[in-house]
Structure formats: C-alpha cells, structure tokens
Computed example of a mutant assay.
Amino acid sequence: MALETCIAFLLADSYDVEDFLFFKKNANRKRRKIRKKLKTEPSDNLQIEDDKRDVFNAVLQSLTISDFKSHFQLTPSQTEDLVRLLAPCEWTAIREERWTVWHAVLASLWALSTQESYHSVANRFHITESLICDQLDEFCTFVSSHLANEIHWPQEEEAEMSVVGFFSNVGLPDTLCVVGTCFIPCEKPIDVPDPEAYKDPKGSYSVKLMAFCNHKGRFTYVSAEHPRNWPNSRILSATELGKALQEDPMALLHGKHIIGNSTFALSEHFLTPFPDYATLGQKKCAITRKCSHLLQWRKAPSIL
C-alpha cells in the first residue's frame, strides 16, 4: 500500500483521481497474474533444476579420487570432513530448497580452485550468481573464523606420527615437516613500503605463500603476506615460526628437523639437499637424493 501511495504522489501532476484508480486496478490485475504464474511455473522449474542437480550429483559420484581432487583440490574424504566441520555454522545463503552445505562447499571450492566467473560456476551448479557470491563469502568467513585452529604446529603424538610417516615414506629420520612456496596473484599492493617487490618480470603482482606440511601433506603453518621477490630465507626469518626457530629451536622441534629445498639456508635444524658438484660422498649423495625425492613426492610448491 505504501508503494502505491508513493506512485500516486509522484504521478499526481500527470494523473487525476480517476486515472489513478484505473492505474491501481490495472496494477492489481497484473500482480494477481504474476502470482498465478509463479504458483504454476515454479513446480516445473524446480523439477527441471532438481533433474539437473541429480545429474550433477551422479557425475560427482562417478569421478575418481584423482579427478575429484583435480577439480576441488581436496579428496572426497577431506571434503566430507570440511562439510562436517562447517555444517553447524549459521549459513544464510543456502536456504534455497534442496541446496545443502555439501553443495555450498563444493561450489565454493570449485570457484576458488578454478577461478571461474560467478556466471560460469552458477551455470555449472544450477543456481543463481548471487547465491554463489553470497555463499562464497560465507564459506571464506567460516573457514577463517571457525577453522583457524585446524592449522597448528605438530606437538607430542602428532609430531611423532609425522616423524614415523616421513621415515616410512622416504627413509629420512627425525623429519617433522617439509616446507614449500608458491605465488598467489594479487592486485598491485597499496600501503606497503615497496609495491614493486610484488611484481614479476611480466608486470603481474603476487605474494609468496610459504607453507609447512606434515607427512600427510596437511598444513602445519602458513604465511602469505610477503613479496614474491623476497628470498625464502628472508621470508622465513620474518615469520613467527622463523623467529621461534632462531630463538629456541629445541622448544619448537624437540630435536627434529625441517626439510626444504636449496633456496633455504642449511642449518642444524633445517635440512636441504647438498649441491651436486660430483664431489659428494656416498652419504651426502644419499641424503640429497632423499631430500629431493621428498620435495618431489610431496610436490611442496604445488600442493599448497
């Protein structure tokens, strides 16, 4: 009623009372027609969307683990764990009928992994672009706020399990974590001392992500705030973990060590491959092969 009053006020100079009564009657007739159409068509539209989603679900179930991971960056079991952890959250963007937390997580993972447009992801998952946008925002918020403690440095039993896992997989004793780096594209940074430090030779900007993972490839520490052109040793020393490693390595590692590539500085607690100068002894060659195998096996830069 308020809307009709506003319309009448705005059109007062052009319409007299009789004209407005006709306008109001015609508007009500159109409104009833739209309501009737919405009552009859949604069932057909919903059925079509349900059929599309059933087909999509069937395709998901037919994917191999490797194919599933290539699309969502997680295995089916890891995705199930993520859904279980996020299910209790107050999702407001998925109140649409037959749209579940499972679908919201999959769509969000797909959007983040493939960087497809909202339009493309919406068509793929048979929902609206606005829903993709809203639920992706909620997904990122829930992950950052509710799952912050899921990434933690291994202690006690977890640490021992990681050591055993690395030894059984590659034969390196007392290995606690492996570290790798990769680049994350970004816009030109502002409010930083040297924006050009984030720039690559092609003119694109990115930050360098440095992450540590255990024997299962799960994150134990992540840093993604430093320029891409900083060397790894400098980034490591600027992180909280790097500072703890310098101040009290025994408290952090308990006599264990970390594996990294040759861009990191070799130390008592940080093991890197020896340079292959054809002068290495048998023992150093063996260590270098195992370190290289571990970094390749874990694919440290690409799994992060």
Rank of each mutant, 00 (worst) to 15 (best):
T141M: 04
L241E: 07
V170Y: 13
W230A: 01
W230T: 00
I287K: 09
I258E: 02
Q73R: 15
E4Y: 15
V170Q: 05
D19A: 14
Q296T: 14
L63C: 05
T220R: 01
C186L: 02
R32Q: 13
L21V: 10
L176E: 01
P154G: 04
L209C: 11
L60Q: 05
T181C: 08
S223M: 07
Y198K: 01
M210D: 01
I7A: 10
R298D: 14
A93R: 07
S108N: 03
A197W: 06
L63S: 05
L253W: 01
L74I: 05
P88W: 02
L3P: 02
L21G: 04
L266C: 11
C182R: 10
T114K: 10
I235A: 01
N26Q: 11
S262H: 11
C177A: 12
P193L: 08
L176H: 07
K299A: 15
V170G: 03
K39M: 15
S14C: 12
V55Q: 13
V121S: 04
S262N: 09
E225L: 11
S43Y: 12
Q282N: 11
K243T: 12
W230V: 00
A122D: 00
H293I: 12
H71L: 14
Q115I: 08
T288P: 00
F125T: 00
A224S: 12
R84K: 12
D16H: 04
T175C: 12
